[in-house]
């Protein structure tokens, strides 16, 4: 579904990503994990062309994204970020209806889809006419996820979506996301620095550090067969310092 081929990226002369190749199968819940500055978000943003790699290419659905029109590509891919990026001047319902609106769906279909998504994300109907600043953090992120799912994209990109939430809300949203992903069969690519989250949600985990891919595998494979001392340190399997962190 998504394929990174020998990606390289430098920002301001500093290498951010060096030679990363990885492949995400349809229906997979892929997690990119690693310390900050590992290049996770940069990789994610290359999928919907918010960022272009210096070297290598990204394929979505077997076609290089470079050959796909950015706006059309982005409308086919759901996008959720940590600070939600909800439109402050639009109501919850209007926020959710953004991409269907861009795709010029008929009004009735948009209304039906919005109601459906609010039910799916356990958002009370009464919230439809509220504005984002009137919601709690957890509700805001539910709207963020609903908005990303609105046009029924095959791929969902999530950049640390739950990092700003309290532990209880995060757990609830993680469980709901997992259920939605399982029942819909969507391909999810999530960036996180929270190992707990990665192990709970990911069907496949890609551990990055300093712009390199350290290891890819299922949670079980990572935990039982860490490829290097760095990996086992990051996973907390040894007493050594995890990579990328100050001693």
């Amino acid at each position: 579904m998504i394929e990174f081929q020998q990606i390289g990226l430098s920002l301001g002369g500093k290498p951010v990503i060096a030679e990363v190749s990885l492949r995400i199968a349809p229906g997979e819940f892929a997690v990119l994990i690693g310390p900050s500055g590992a290049g996770k978000s940069s990789l994610l943003r290359m999928v919907n062309r918010l960022l272009e790699p210096d070297r290598g290419q990204v394929l979505v659905g077997g076609v290089p994204v470079r050959e796909q029109e950015p706006t059309a590509l982005r409308r086919r891919i759901g996008y959720v970020i940590q600070s939600t990026g909800l439109f402050p001047h639009r109501t919850v319902a209007q926020n959710i209806a953004t991409v269907p609106g861009l795709l010029q769906w008929p009004v009735a279909r948009i209304a039906a889809r919005t109601a459906e998504l609010m039910a799916l994300l356990h958002l009370d109907e009464a919230l439809a006419e509220r504005y984002p600043h009137q919601l709690s953090g957890g509700q805001q992120q539910r709207v963020g996820v609903a908005r990303a799912l609105a046009a029924d994209p095959e791929i969902l990109l999530m950049d640390e979506p739950f990092a700003a939430l309290d532990a209880v809300t995060r757990r609830a949203l993680q469980a709901e996301l997992l259920q939605i992903q399982r029942s819909s069969g969507k391909t999810v690519l999530m960036v996180t620095h929270d190992l707990d989250e990665a192990l709970r949600l990911g069907t496949r985990i890609h551990l990055l550090d300093g712009g390199r891919l350290l290891q890819s595998g299922t949670p079980l494979e990572l935990m039982t067969r860490p490829a290097s001392p760095e990996v086992s340190a990051f996973l907390g399997l040894t007493l050594g310092d995890p990579p990328g962190r100050e001693p």
Partner: peptide, 14 residues
């Protein structure tokens, strides 16, 4: 907010 612009772009607005 930068996040609002980022999500607007990420959703495919011109």
């Amino acid at each position: 907010p930068a996040a609002v612009l980022d999500s607007a772009r990420g959703m495919g607005m011109t």
